[in-house]
Design a protein around this nucleic acid. Structure first.
Length: 674
DNA sequence: CTGTCCTATCTTTTT
DNA sequence: GATAGGACAG
């Protein structure tokens, strides 16, 4: 018997020691899921299974990192740990696509576009199709297309739909993809889709099957179409697949995740071992009781019940405040008080919320009292204008056909290439079937373009091309530095921001990129510009603030990013109709996913849990009365009053603003001016 | 072509 | 209440 079974309960042992054949682990919140996974991997290695034949896939970088660290701690065989493949689906796919780019039908130097680039690309697609943004908003269109990709529906299939709106989206989908392709870019969804495509190749498929004999998928309930396909294809033959998940924590339905996958596991893989982990070691009985009371209101779920093994504990607190300002005040007060207790540290505390607009006031309060905090997600380092600019330059050097990046920086800093030149150039490019860069380079052939602008653009493009030779690892840092000075970015910052402090923060951000390049070059022996950009796009964990005050900080994050974590003391804030459950979900009648979200929030707490709601809250800058969330009633085991449901439904109805009036005043205003 | 001011829109959630 | 993109003057 392996030493990795010691200290586990019988169900956990069964999961760890079942190595061959399909295994489904239904792991409730806090039941030692990660422990089981890491012990299982260590156990496999100890039993002579070659580490390089094990593939473990997670959904977040954080989970992947944690898994790696914990396995490394368990097993003393350093070499084996290095041979393991542990990563997110996305990073696994990128690596494979880069390696087998030809078979996958992608360029070797393909770039990865983030949400912002996607939006720009979609806007372009809609403009090409002459679909006005009033017919369909680019954002909406993009999310629809993304969902289609996540369900493995092609543009072609969708365009054939009889429904007019659907066929419009289908065409946008097609043009959007075409645009990305022309620029040599893949979006996040494409990474998975092309991987599926790669596995359609018989040779490739047998290659991957041979290499990865043992699969492990974390958070199986979050698997979307392409991810499911990838797992299916690789595991189909040897059937050594272990899926770990919890249908009650499925919170990515909007991203194409399909809970039925976890319910149909046995159908998909044949006779399986199914293990249920229901003993919760994380939270007190009080907290688990509340969590169970909430989640039992969902109808489509495996019937199961968590049992706490952590003692009774204190009651869950529910607090009502006047408004969001009071709420922030109260929560931060409470955290400050408790943090004085002996043995308590700031990292024990978390403030969890539904949407990204909520953390602001909490940040304010925390800063006012000089309590260190860490805001996960939200406006990150990579969203800063100067960072995006520099990264666009770099992407352009790595992949000269990346037109999204070219358009972003061609006139930043201003070099006399304005909208009219760009629009004309785009028209010429479409007409002549050329890339935008080629149009500028052969500018003399196109008299419609301004000669001075063309000259400037050409010089710019060629100067970047001149840098494309020095992209290997050791040269990375000097490349980034050289680029920044070549485009005179410092002058641009000084020019744009009069305030000296603003200048220095922005300049610091640029230096941070140089820093990151240095770290990247040091960490990987196969480092290059491409690997650097890839790392930033896929593993974009913004840990730039992990240096100053150790790590002892209060955590602020959304419920989505809180999954998989635990804290001694949790404040779940804004527990109101319209926020949790979110208005949009109420509209769509998709309450169950919101309930799971609440469940995830509740089960993050080990000892203390406080839910708060307000009497009124400002939305869109307008103050309105709020209704306590139905989940609060459920938590107390009470019937949700009909009034709450009714009022909530009413609240969701968007107050139709008097559009007519607005139009009239607008006309009047412009008339006056004229 | 560039800079400024105004306005329309937004608020789910993430790799 | 913020912010990005459009309209307009310089």
């Amino acid at each position: 018997m392996s030493k990795f079974l010691a200290g586990l309960n019988s169900e956990q042992k069964r999961a760890v020691s079942t190595v061959k054949g399909p295994l489904l682990v239904l792991a409730g919140a806090g039941t030692g899921k990660t422990r089981v996974i890491t012990h299982r991997i260590a156990h496999m290695i100890a039993n002579g299974i070659p580490a390089r034949s094990i593939l473990a896939m997670t959904f977040t970088n954080r989970a992947a990192t944690e898994m790696k660290e914990r396995v490394a701690k368990l097993t003393k065989k350093k070499k084996a740990v290095e041979d393991l493949t542990i990563g997110t689906f996305h990073s696994f796919c990128v690596k494979a696509l880069r390696q087998f780019s030809e078979s996958a039908g992608v360029r070797k130097n393909f770039g990865i576009c983030d949400a912002d680039d996607q939006l720009v690309a979609m806007k372009q697609a809609l403009r090409q199709l002459r679909i006005p943004e009033t017919v369909i908003q680019p954002r909406v269109c993009l999310s629809r297309v993304s969902l289609l990709k996540n369900r493995l529906v092609t543009a072609h299939e969708y365009s054939e739909s009889a429904n007019e709106m659907k066929s419009t989206i289908g065409r946008a989908y097609e043009y959007y993809d075409r645009g990305l392709q022309a620029s040599g870019l893949l979006d996040f969804d494409d990474l998975l889709l092309y991987m599926v495509k790669l596995l359609e190749d018989k040779k490739m498929l047998s290659l991957f099957r041979k290499r990865y004999q043992y699969l492990l998928i974390d958070e199986y309930q979050d698997t979307n179409g392409p991810q499911y396909e990838i797992v299916q294809r690789i595991a189909k033959k040897h059937r050594n697949v272990c899926a770990v998940g919890d249908d009650d924590q499925s919170i990515y339905g909007w991203r194409g995740a399909d809970v039925s996958k976890i319910l149909n596991f046995e159908k998909d893989f044949g006779e399986s071992v199914i293990v249920r982990l229901e003993t919760n070691y994380r939270s007190t009985t009080q907290i688990i009781k509340g969590a169970n009371l909430v989640i039992r209101n969902n109808s489509s779920r495996h019937d199961k019940k968590l049992k706490s093994a952590a003692g009774n504990g204190s009651e869950i607190k529910i607090v009502r405040l006047d408004d969001e300002e009071e709420e922030a005040l109260h929560v931060v007060d409470d955290i400050e008080d408790k943090s004085w207790e002996p043995g308590s540290s700031l990292r024990d505390f978390a403030i969890l919320f539904r949407t990204q607009v909520q953390p602001r006031l909490f940040e304010q309060q925390l800063r006012r009292r000089q309590i260190p905090y860490r805001l996960v997600g939200g406006m990150s380092f990579f969203d800063r204008k100067e960072v995006r600019d520099i990264l666009s330059y770099l992407r352009l050097i790595a992949n000269p056909s990346d037109e999204l990046s070219l358009l972003r920086v061609i006139n930043t800093p201003p070099r006399g290439i304005g909208d009219s030149t760009i629009n004309k150039a785009l028209a010429v490019a479409a007409e002549q079937q050329l890339g935008l860069a080629d149009v500028f380079k052969r500018g003399a052939d196109f008299p419609s373009l301004s000669a001075t602008a063309v000259k400037s653009a050409r010089a710019f493009i060629e100067s970047l091309e001149g840098m494309s030779h020095r992209t290997s690892g050791p040269e990375l840092v000097s490349l980034v530095k050289g680029l920044v000075s070549e485009v005179k970015y410092k002058d641009e910052i000084v020019r744009c921001y009069k305030d000296e402090r603003a200048c220095s923060t922005r300049w610091d951000a640029i230096n941070e990129i140089v820093n990151m390049a240095e770290i990247h070059a040091r960490q990987r022996n196969d480092a290059s510009l491409i690997s650097f950009l890839e790392d930033l796009a896929i593993n974009a964990t913004d840990d730039s603030d992990d240096d100053d005050s150790g790590d002892d900080k209060v955590t602020l994050m959304t419920l989505h990013s809180a999954k998989g974590l635990e804290f001694k003391d949790v404040h779940l804030v804004g527990v109101e109709e319209g926020l949790l459950p979110h208005a949009r979900s109420i509209e769509d009648g998709d309450i169950e996913e919101e309930r799971r979200l609440a469940y995830v929030g509740i089960t993050r707490a080990q000892k203390g849990l406080t839910l708060s709601y307000t009497r009124s809250r400002a939305r869109y800058g307008q103050r309105a009365a709020t209704i306590p969330s139905r989940f609060l009633y459920e938590l107390k085991g009470k019937q949700v009053p009909d009034e709450v449901i009714a009022a909530s439904a009413k609240m969701v109805e968007p107050p139709p603003p008097a559009k007519k009036k607005k139009k009239v005043t607008r006309r009047r205003k412009s008339a006056r001016k004229r």
